[in-house]
C-alpha cells in the first residue's frame, strides 16, 4: 500500500467516510464536519508514527492538515526532504 492509500485508508476508517462522494480529497475536513478533536489528535499521531516524521510547531499552525491532498503533499515533501526520525 502506498503512502496516499495508507493516509486515505486511515481517514476513511477513522472518520467513516468514503472519499469521492460528498467528501473529496480536496475537501476541508473541518468544514465538512469530518474531523473532531479526538480524531485530529489520532490523525497527527498516525502521521508521525506511520511515516516516522516530526511535525514542527510552525507546520502544525499552518493550514496544512485540513484536506487529504494537503496532508498527503505534506507527508510526501517531508519524506522527500528526508526529514524523518529514522529511515524506513
Amino acid at each position: 500500500m502506498d503512502r496516499t492509500q495508507k493516509i486515505r485508508q486511515f481517514v476513511e476508517e477513522r472518520f467513516l467516510i468514503d472519499f469521492g462522494g460528498e467528501v473529496t480529497a480536496e475537501s476541508d475536513l473541518f468544514k465538512a464536519g469530518v474531523i473532531d478533536s479526538f480524531g485530529y489528535i489520532q490523525l497527527m499521531s498516525f502521521l508521525e508514527d506511520e511515516f516516522s516524521l516530526r511535525i514542527t510547531d510552525e507546520e502544525i499552525l499552518g493550514n496544512i492538515f485540513v484536506s487529504l491532498d494537503g496532508i498527503d503533499a505534506f507527508v510526501a515533501a517531508k519524506l522527500a526532504e528526508g526529514d524523518v526520525l529514522c529511515a524506513d
Binding site: F30, Y40, I41, S45, I55, D57, I60, F65
Partner: peptide, 22 residues
C-alpha cells in the same frame, strides 16, 4: 487523555483551526 501533555503540539494545531469564527 487526548488533551494530555503528549498531544500538546497537536492540540495547538487543532485550536489554530478553531480560532476564527466560521
Amino acid at each position: 487523555a487526548h488533551f494530555g501533555p503528549a498531544h500538546r503540539k497537536h492540540l495547538t494545531g487543532l485550536f489554530q483551526q478553531f480560532s476564527v469564527e466560521r
